[in-house]
């Protein structure tokens, strides 16, 4: 939260320099749990972004009203309300995806990214900037989670979004769709981010 507070810096920060997953290492649970297919990852990323933006607006609007002592409890209530909405929306749109994601939609409530942004940014900045920050973080989170989903689905079942990419002769790496694969791929991605960071 240092010097650069221009609108474009606030928006783009979440994508790379302060990427919530690769750099801040926040919100790991959904990142690891639902990334076995690209579709699940995308829905999870969008749902999390929706909750991020919506709660950023409300938290920012009420930042002068909520007393400091009860702010965390209030933020959690605001977030929980939007997560419940997201949960019902996904259920209405596609029951299949809702079933695949299971409890992890509800668990967006305890995703530290959202509470972290509410506490660190939205509670001290005007609405417009808070929305930009939330959108940036949402894009960064979705990018990270879809990247992980792409690697796991490609290697784990040879498909992308359900399309057969690698052809029938490809032998799927079963490990990639299993829990262990999630840890390995994320570890590898963090390593790659470190390598790129080193080059610059």
């Amino acid at each position: 939260m240092t010097g650069d507070t221009t609108a474009s810096a606030v928006l783009t920060r979440g994508f790379w320099r302060d990427n919530p997953v690769f750099v801040q290492v926040l919100g790991m649970c959904p990142v690891l749990a639902v990334t076995n297919t690209v579709e699940n990852s995308l829905v999870m990323g969008l749902a999390t972004s929706f909750v991020l933006v919506a709660s950023a607006i409300i938290v920012s609007l009420t930042r002068r009203v909520i007393p400091r002592q009860v702010r965390i409890a209030s933020y959690i209530l605001i977030i929980a309300t939007f997560v419940t909405m997201a949960d019902y929306i996904i259920q209405a749109v596609s029951l299949e995806i809702h079933r695949a994601l299971g409890a992890f939609i509800s668990l967006i409530v305890v995703n530290c990214i959202i509470l972290g942004r509410a506490e660190a940014f939205s509670s001290r900045n005007p609405v417009f900037k808070s929305v930009l920050d939330a959108v940036g973080m949402g894009i960064g989170f979705t990018f990270a989670i879809v990247a992980l989903g792409t690697i796991r689905e490609l290697l784990g079942s040879g498909t992308w979004m359900g399309w057969d990419v690698l052809g029938p002769s490809f032998e799927p790496w079963v490990i990639m769709v299993l829990p262990g694969g999630a840890f390995f791929v994320l570890g590898l991605l963090l390593f790659l981010v470190n390598v790129i960071g080193e080059r610059r």
Binding site: F183, G187, L188, L190, F191, V195
Partner: peptide, 15 residues
């Protein structure tokens, strides 16, 4: 040193 920190912990967690 590039693997230090969270990256190596994740690999261990995978194993």
């Amino acid at each position: 040193h590039l693997l230090k920190g969270t990256a190596i912990v994740l690999v261990v967690a995978g194993i």
